[in-house]
Nucleic acid binder design. Structure first.
Lengths: 339, 339
DNA sequence: TTGAAAGCGCTAACAT
DNA sequence: ATGTTAGCGCTTTCAA
C-alpha cells in the first residue's frame, strides 16, 4: 500500500499570498493575460521564481477539459522492432517542435495490454493518439475514433470508420522483392509472414503471390509460413523451411525481426548466403550493410511515416472537421548482397 | 488553436442519477468498498456497463494527490540504442505486472529536452521515475530526488545524493574486452568513447587503460577518440583511427551504436575483420551472430537492469524510507569471431 | 486592473 | 448502508 509521499508542491495559493495578490492574478500572469499591470506582473514573476512554482497540469486539465493537455498518446505494437522505433523518432521530432509530450505505450502485440493502455490513455485525457491497431476491426480503437478523439493510424488501417492513416505500399514492395528474387533464378521462394491478421502481412503475401505468378512460378502453400512477427518466429519458421524435403532456395522475410531470426538460423547451420539460400527482408536497418552478407531489403520510410502521422494528428487536433486523408508512402528496394 | 473536442465522457453524476443513488455510492462500487448492499451494487454496475462509464483518472489524481496515479515515468537518453530498448522491456514487464503504466520520454541526449520532459513528468504527478541522467551532476534530477519523488537511476549514478541505482561493472567489462584483444596479439588497440561526461564512458576508459598497462602496452592518447555515443560518431571516429599514419589494429567500441558505426566504416573500406582490424563492442545484440563476422562483445544484462530498477522503484514507492541500494550487475564477454 | 467565487470529477470524512 | 459535502489546483466569468 503506497505511503504518503511527503513532497509537497507549491500552488497558486502560496504564490498569491506571498505576492500579496489574488490567485486569479497569479493565474493571469502565468497565462500571459494582458490585463495585469507591469508592476504586478513583475512582482508575481519574482515570487514564482523564488518559490520555484510550476503549475499543476492535472488540475489544469480537470478544470479545462477541452483545453490542451499537450499530451499525445502513441500505441506501439512492438518496441523491439527497429521499424517502430524509427517511426517513433519521426513522431517525436514533430511532437517536440509543437510542444507536445508523448505517452508511449508498447503493447507487445498483446491485445489485452493494448486495451488496458487505451483505457489509461483515454482517461489521461490526451489530445490525440497515434496507433497501430492489432487488426482492422480493433473495436477499442474504432470506438475511440467514433467518440471524436483525434487519431491517426500508422502501418495498419481500420475498417468501417473514417480515420487518417499513413501506410506504405506493402503489396508493391513485396512484389519488387520477390520479383527480384525470381529474376535472379530462384525457384523455391518462401515467405515468412508476420501475424496473419495484420493487413500488412496480407498485402505482402498478395505481392509475393503476384510476383510468383508474374514469373510463372508455382505457388506452393508449403513455402508460406505464418508467424507472429517476432524474432523467434523467424528462427523457427526458417528452420522448418530448411527442413523441407524440397527446401526453399530463397526466403522473403515479412519484417525486420523475422529477417534477423532467419539469418540466425542460416548462420547456425553454416549455410552460405546467397549461394545456399538467398534472403531478402521487408524493412531496412541502418546496419544492414554490416550484416553477413550485406542485406538486400525493402526499405520503408519509417521516420517519414512517423513524421507525417504526427503532422496529420496535430492538424486534426487543430481542425477536427477537416476531411480524413490516407497517405500511402512508397517503398524502395535496397539491393545489396544477400540475393 | 485547438478547437473543442465534442466527445463528452460519462461521469459519476450521470451514473448516479440513472441508478437512482448518490455519487458516493457509485464511487464505493467502483472502489470495491464493502459498505454497499449486493442489490445496490449490482444495479449500479449495470448502469456503469450500460453507460460505458470509466472513471476520470485526472480528477482522481487531483483529488487524491497522495494516492497512486499508477503512472511511472521513464527517461531514456536514446531510444535508438537497442540497449535502452531492452532495459525498457524489463521495466515494462514489471510495471505491467504491478498495474503501472509508463510514460516514456526519450530526450536524445539533449539536456534541454530532458529538462522539459522532467517538468512534464513532475506535473503529471507520476508515482515514480526511472532515469538515466545526462551526467552525475544533473541538477534537475537531483532536485527531484531531494523533493522526495521516488527515483531509481539506471546506467548512470548521481553524485551527492542518496538514490537507488542499478549499474553494471563497466570497468571490469572494458578490462575483459581489451585484455582479450591484447592476449590475442593486438598492439594498437583503440577506444572509441561515448559522451565523455558519462560515468560509464569514463569507467570503460579506465578499464581500457588498465588492461593496456596490465599487458605492458603503451597508452597512446591518439588511439582514444571521444564521441557522442551515436552511430554517426562511430562511423567518423573509426575513419580517423584508420587514417592514422600508424593505424589502429583493433577497436574497442564504447557502445552498441558506435560498434555498428565502426563496422559500417570498416565494411565500406572492404577491410577484413579480424585480419585487417579486430573489433569488440560494449553491448551485445541479439543479432550479433548475424553480423559480419559474428561480433565479440561485452554483454550487459539490459533486460535485467530494467527489471531490477522497476522492482526497486516499486519497493520505494511502497516504502519511501527504506535505505537506498546500489545494485551492480556483472557483464559477460561473448567471444565470437571479430577478434 | 483586480478579486471573489463557481465548478471540472472525484474521494473520504462526516452525518444520517 | 447510504447521502451530503468539502476540497484537490486551476481557469474563468462576473463584479467591483
Amino acid at each position: 500500500m503506497p505511503v504518503e509521499n511527503d513532497y509537497k508542491t507549491v500552488n497558486l495559493n502560496e504564490v498569491a499570498k506571498k505576492a500579496g495578490v489574488s490567485i486569479a492574478t497569479v493565474s493571469r500572469v502565468i497565462n500571459n493575460n494582458p490585463n495585469v499591470t507591469p508592476v504586478t506582473r513583475t512582482k508575481v514573476q519574482q515570487v514564482i521564481r523564488k518559490l520555484k512554482y510550476s503549475p499543476n497540469r492535472v488540475a489544469k486539465r480537470l478544470r479545462n477539459r477541452y483545453a490542451s493537455s499537450n499530451l499525445l498518446g502513441v500505441l506501439i505494437p512492438d518496441i523491439q522492432n527497429p521499424f517502430y522505433v524509427e517511426v517513433l523518432r519521426g513522431i517525436e521530432d514533430v511532437a517536440y517542435e509543437n510542444k507536445y509530450a508523448l505517452i508511449m505505450c508498447n503493447f507487445s502485440q498483446d491485445e489485452k495490454k493494448e486495451k488496458l493502455y487505451l483505457d489509461i490513455l483515454q482517461s489521461e485525457s490526451i489530445d490525440g493518439l497515434i496507433a497501430a491497431p492489432t487488426h482492422e476491426h480493433d473495436q477499442k480503437v474504432i470506438h475511440l475514433v467514433k467518440s471524436g478523439l483525434p487519431i491517426v493510424c500508422v502501418d495498419r488501417g481500420l475498417s468501417g470508420v473514417d480515420v487518417d492513416v499513413v501506410l506504405v505500399e506493402n503489396k508493391n514492395g513485396a512484389f519488387a522483392a520477390v520479383d527480384h528474387l525470381a529474376k535472379n533464378g530462384y525457384k523455391r521462394i518462401a515467405y515468412i509472414s508476420g501475424l496473419p491478421q495484420l493487413p500488412s502481412s496480407q498485402q505482402r503475401e498478395a505481392g509475393y503471390i503476384e510476383a510468383l505468378m508474374a514469373n510463372k512460378l508455382p505457388v506452393d502453400r508449403e513455402l508460406i509460413r505464418l508467424g507472429d512477427s517476432s524474432h523467434e518466429s523467424g528462427v523457427r519458421l526458417c528452420e522448418e523451411l530448411l527442413n523441407l524435403s524440397s527446401p526453399a532456395d530463397a526466403v522473403f522475410a515479412g519484417n525486420n525481426l523475422i529477417t534477423l531470426g532467419a539469418l540466425e538460423t542460416i548462420h547456425k547451420r553454416k549455410l552460405k548466403i546467397p549461394q545456399d539460400i538467398a534472403v531478402i527482408g521487408f524493412d531496412d536497418m541502418y546496419w544492414s550493410i554490416s550484416l553477413n552478407p550485406p542485406l538486400t531489403a525493402v526499405r520503408q520510410p519509417a521516420y517519414e511515416i512517423g513524421k507525417r502521422a504526427a503532422e496529420l494528428l496535430i492538424q486534426r487536433i487543430n481542425d477536427p472537421v477537416r476531411p480524413t486523408v490516407s497517405m500511402i508512402l512508397k517503398t524502395e528496394l535496397m539491393i545489396r548482397n544477400s540475393c
